[in-house]
Amino acid sequence: MDWVLEGPYWFSSVKEINDENRQVVRKRRHSGQPVSILEFTESEIGHFLNQAHDTIIGEGQSARVWVGLIPDGFRHGLSAQHAAVKEYNYTSHDTFDLWEIERVHLMKLAHPNIIKLIGYCHHKPHNGQEKKVLVLEHMPGGNLNERLFHIDKWNNESVEWDKRVRILHDAAKAIKYLHGMNLIYRDLKAENILLDSDMNAKLVDFGAMIDGPRPPNAYIETPQPIGTMGYTDPSYIETGRADMGIDIYSFGVLILVVILGRRAVTTKKKTELSVKINEKYKDRPLDLLRSKKLRRDSYRRKELQSLLDLARRCLEEASKRPTCDGILREFENIQAAKTWPPSGFDMTLDSLSKGFPD
């Protein structure tokens, strides 16, 4: 499955998300520059799905996602391509509102590491079932969570170390772009990162995103915290105050998930990975590097140390966290330090499973 749509929001219902975002949508609908987004008819959507044999790639409470095939020459300037056709659940008006929230957000976003909106469909017959659909670019590499923890679906191919670092860099660039537009994403996690055939990463699912604070305000008061367990800033959960720093915290968790091959929350004990890093493993975080899925991969020791240090800084109290600019500088330093053959490539994650060498 390429898309994971179940349980995207831990703290809030779809209704609470919609209530918070309606004002944002109203402002954006009339404020932006024109974007070349296509409007499709219901029959055209059906044609796309038939061309791809009605293949479902994701399903959840709010929507179902199929692979669609747009034939060559279908619309002027639109080349033949596969697409992700996301149809929202018509049984819930709140879920239908998510369609409008995501559509308006995506019409204003244009970045290589953010999913591209190709078009949409809103079919409202006089008598019959209303239909709301988004047509998005297709990402055949699946979502990052599946590539890390369900590799049996991907020929048991583990994600190589260099690709893990690049995926994190891509995610950081996407968040930097959103913050530059004064937007708080609020639900950064491995499930919301899709990969193309070359393992380039793109951010998806923007239903939780809100406008950030404007001077002199330092934060936004939200009626109900929104996020996913294990990824969400504890101070945000406690106070409901949102700023750009909550995305930085989530990025710190994402680093740990990606480089350690560990889930953000343990399946059995429901222990958060960030809590382990900050408390139980404060002085020996590398003891966590025991993932069997990662043992075959080689890694660069200096990169590993740099990323662990970066993750720790992201998980600090809000005033001590790096900005997106600081995070991107760290990745630029990692890239600049690469040599070939890499001098630090003499260790594998097999060796770490036996303890980090002195």
Rank of each mutant, 00 (worst) to 15 (best):
M1H: 04
W3L: 15
F11L: 05
E16N: 07
D19L: 09
R26M: 04
G32A: 10
Q33P: 04
V35D: 13
I45P: 14
L49M: 15
A52W: 02
D54L: 14
T55H: 10
G60I: 03
A63P: 06
A63H: 05
R64C: 14
W66S: 11
I70W: 05
H76R: 10
A83T: 11
V85H: 05
K86E: 05
T91H: 13
T91N: 14
T91I: 15
V104L: 08
L109W: 01
I115V: 15
K116W: 01
P125E: 09
G128E: 14
E130L: 13
L136E: 04
L144M: 07
F149K: 00
K163G: 08
R164T: 09
L168A: 12
H169E: 14
D170C: 04
K173H: 14
M181Y: 01
L183F: 03
A190F: 12
L194S: 06
M199G: 01
A201W: 08
K202T: 06
M209R: 01
I210V: 10
P215C: 08
P216D: 13
T222V: 15
T222I: 15
I226A: 11
G227D: 06
Y231I: 10
S235P: 09
G245S: 09
F251E: 07
V257M: 05
V257C: 06
I259R: 06
I259H: 03
G261A: 11
R263M: 13
A264Y: 07
K269G: 00
L273R: 01
V275M: 12
V275E: 13
Y281T: 08
L286N: 03
S291I: 02
K292Y: 10
R301T: 05
R301P: 02
R313W: 07
R313Y: 08
E316D: 12
E317Q: 15
S319I: 10
T323G: 02
T323D: 03
D325P: 00
I327N: 00
L328I: 12
N333A: 07
P342T: 02
D346R: 08
D358S: 12
